[in-house]
Structure formats: structure tokens, C-alpha cells
Design a protein around this nucleic acid. Structure first.
Lengths: 157, 157
DNA sequence: GCTTGACCTGGAGTGCACTCCAACCGGTAG
DNA sequence: CTACCGGTTGGAGTGCACTCCAGGTCAAGC
């Protein structure tokens, strides 16, 4: 398989494949007589996994570290597992945050829908348009929230 | 509230707050006698929401567009709702992808754990270390996958 | 033999999202 | 009075992750 085929199959561009090789994410492939890269199909599984790591929020440095460990073979199993466990934690956190956001969005979409229908809305949700862009509304009297805990009020408008 | 207080309460740096204001994510605040920014506590809700949009994967351009619409008030409700619905879709997709990754990671962590314990492993999962870094393994004989569908095999090693 | 197209290299350029810096100003505590 | 702290501005610099390009090579088809 040459780089063009691999690009097509992996969904990455040839530029990206060469870039990944340059920084060490991909192993240096064999070359044919003309100096062109020749890939084994097995590389696709590695690329897919790299892709998954990336699309679930692992940065290039950590991917690089993981690739480096992988190159060392079985000796690096423990460290690799630890990296995966750390990433698992982040992924789980992200799922939590996204799931929370889903309900925030659903509430807001619902609110907007009702406002679009001309419904009058709970004044608790209507205090932002008034204070926008430095409009001459009355100024705050320093009625701060309790310090330390930020209650994450999602009623911005 | 001055910019330092807001930084502390919002978790953003003063530089970031000024940067957000410059690009239009935050409305221009009032100034005190000395030209210093004075914020109403209500801005915290907006910042929190912006933060949520960001941390759930919305880029700065879309956040900017949303902020712009928000500045226009009720006239932009429909478009804002559409943006939120689009974002909701992406968030739902992300949750799916992350959840899938969670089980991929769990499988892999389990596999590594078993390998660390010295267990012999199904050869289907052991074909990557051999073909790494252009090592002199036998070359592929072009036994491609069926074209079009990439089966997303997660057994990279 | 010549053209075409895929590939090669090294290096420059891009877009995002900040982050840092120099040089300055204004209010307050000692 | 002066030191200091926290603000102000415009602009430069950073890190990530590509992406593009110029100028060249090589193999296959006509």
C-alpha cells in the first residue's frame, strides 16, 4: 500500500500522514525502489486507534508519548495501561460534562421556544438583555455570591 | 466588580477577559473614574455559559456568532435556538463517541492487565508489535478490506 | 521518448485561542 | 511624598495541529 491508498483508507491526508511520521506518531515505513513509502495494512488499526485517542481529546504530546511506548514493545505495557487509565478518567469526566450540557441545552432550547411563541417568561431568566453592552442600567451593589463556591447558575438568558 | 475580581470569580485570567472583550465575546463594560472596567455580577452567568459552550466543543467563531446574536436581543431568538439545537446534536454525537471509547479503553486496559500478568493472549491481538518501525517482517500481500466500509478494528495491540 | 501523475523533501504559512510584555496611569497606605 | 498595587493599551509571542508549496524524482502508459 502506498501513501495515497493509506490516505484514502485512513481518512487522513498524505500531508498529515507524513507529518505524523515526522513527529513520531507513525513508524517509518519501508520504501520501494523509488524511495516511496510502502505500508502494511496493519498500520490502519494503529491509525484508527490514534484517531480515537485524538477525537476523544488526547493531545498530540500524549499520543506521541503513547506511540513512543508502543514502539518499546511489551516492556512498556504497564505505563501504557496507566496512560489509558488516565485517559479513561478524562473521557468519563467529559461524558459527565457533556451530559450535563445536554440538559442545559434542552432547557434553554425549550425556553427559547416558549419565548418565540410569545409566552411571558419567569423574570429569573430575563435579566440579561437589560444589562448588556454597558447599557445604562443601575449598577450592582456588590451583592456577591458566597465566596469559594461558584453556584454555576445556568440562567444566562 | 473590577477585572481582577471577575477573573477570580470566573476562573478566567484578566488577559483572557480583555481578549474576550476585544473579540466581542463579552460586552464592553462601564468604566470608573480612572478608566477601569466595572462589571455587573450578571456577567458571570454569561461567562459560565460561554465556558460551557467552549468546554463542550464549540469553537470561538460560533461562540462569537452566538454572542453577537445575544447582543441583538429577542429578534435573534430563533437563530440562537437553531444554533443551540445544532450544538446539541454535536454534543449528543460526542457523548456517543466518548461512550464507545470508554468500552474500547476498558477492553484494552483489561487486555494489558492480562498481558502484564503473563497471560498468553489471543493472537488476533498480538499482530502489531511484530510489524512495527519497518522491522523486517514479511510484507503484506494486498489482502485489503472490503472497499467502502472500514470495519474500525480496535485491536491495534 | 515523452508526458502524466503520484510521490519525495524541507520549509513556510495558517487558524485557533490565548498569553505575555513594555510602558504607562491612578488610587491608597505608610 | 512615594512606593506599590492593580489597572490601562497595543502588539508581539506561544503552542498545537496541521496544511500548503516549490522544486525535484520516478515509474508507467501512450
Amino acid at each position: 500500500m502506498r501513501i495515497g491508498d493509506l490516505a484514502e483508507k485512513s481518512g487522513l491526508s498524505t500531508d498529515t500522514l507524513r507529518y505524523y511520521e515526522k513527529i513520531g506518531l507513525l513508524p517509518r515505513p519501508l520504501r520501494d525502489g523509488g524511495g516511496r513509502r510502502v505500508y502494511d495494512a496493519a498500520i490502519l488499526r494503529w491509525i484508527d486507534f490514534l484517531d480515537r485517542l485524538k477525537s476523544t481529546g488526547m493531545g498530540i504530546k500524549d499520543r506521541l508519548r503513547y506511540a513512543e511506548l508502543r514502539g518499546k514493545g511489551v516492556a512498556s505495557l504497564t505505563e501504557r495501561r496507566e496512560m489509558l487509565e488516565a485517559h479513561r478518567g478524562k473521557v468519563a469526566d467529559d461524558i459527565g460534562r457533556l451530559t450535563e450540557m445536554l440538559s442545559v441545552l434542552d432547557d434553554k432550547i425549550d425556553l427559547y421556544r416558549r419565548m418565540e411563541a410569545g409566552e411571558t417568561v419567569d423574570p429569573a431568566f430575563e435579566n440579561c438583555a437589560r444589562t448588556e453592552h454597558g447599557a445604562p442600567s443601575r449598577q450592582e451593589q456588590n451583592h456577591e455570591h458566597s465566596p469559594g463556591t461558584r453556584p454555576r447558575a445556568d440562567a444566562e438568558a
